[in-house]
Write a protein that binds this DNA or RNA. Structure first.
Lengths: 114, 114
DNA sequence: GCAACATATATCACCAAGTGATATATCTAA
DNA sequence: TTAGATATATCACTTGGTGATATATGTTGC
């Protein structure tokens, strides 16, 4: 299971876990969901997706689910484990604290023309 | 100025910009501030700090400020540029939207014993 | 005066992780 | 029947972060 993996999470890991938080999905659906969840700002290609999935499987943050009503043999469906869920929770908690801090210092970005 | 650099930001970039959002700082102070801002969850060593600073300078996201009341010749003080400020603003906006989405789907992590 | 430690910057060699490109196969719609 | 979406997979490469280490100065206590 190699190294435990801590927050802050990388975008690829975060969006993979986050996509699965909305329900079991196969790889391709994770890619699409990641893009949707980020409003298009994060696009994960197949190389990033499948290497990330491989790592998360090894770390026991996701598992492949088999046998349930998935008739299509070529799809591999993944599910968030309790460890994965807890890690995602920790990450969300982390960014929430960060945002609170940013608001507390009343920081505002400058206006710029693109 | 190489590649424009987009959100999502890496933790090293994010915390460097965020630390400077609280005012001009020299490298070592950025390291300490990053740790403080993350409540200890993110620790940046000198290697990461100075390579990140170098990159941000090249990208015109931060500048070195000279001449102002800094008597110590060995310190190099950095300041967020407008571009840097705008990018940090975009990143904060991004994670805010993400948190809203997480709350909207009413997702809660499982409880786990450490 | 000097030992111990924090401050401060810098660089090397290495590694983890993401990525563009490409390949392969199936499914869907015109 | 062909074009494009769906779906998974892998290679070679790059980017970026990291532990270790080096160097020098400032600070504190004895």
């Amino acid at each position: 299971m190699s190294q435990p993996l801590e927050v802050p999470l990388t975008p690829a890991v975060f969006f993979t876990l986050f996509a699965l938080a909305g329900g079991d999905k196969h790889g391709y659906a994770i890619m699409q969901e990641a893009r949707k969840l980020s409003d298009g700002s994060f696009r994960m290609g197949p190389a990033t997706l499948y290497t990330t999935v491989q790592r998360l499987l090894e770390l026991d943050l996701i598992v492949e689910v088999t046998g349930d009503g998935e008739p299509d043999g070529r799809r591999r469906t993944y599910r968030l484990t309790d460890r994965g869920s807890a890690l995602l929770g920790a990450e969300l908690k982390r960014v929430e604290a960060l945002l609170r801090r940013a608001k507390a210092m009343n920081w505002k970005p400058v206006e710029v023309k693109p």
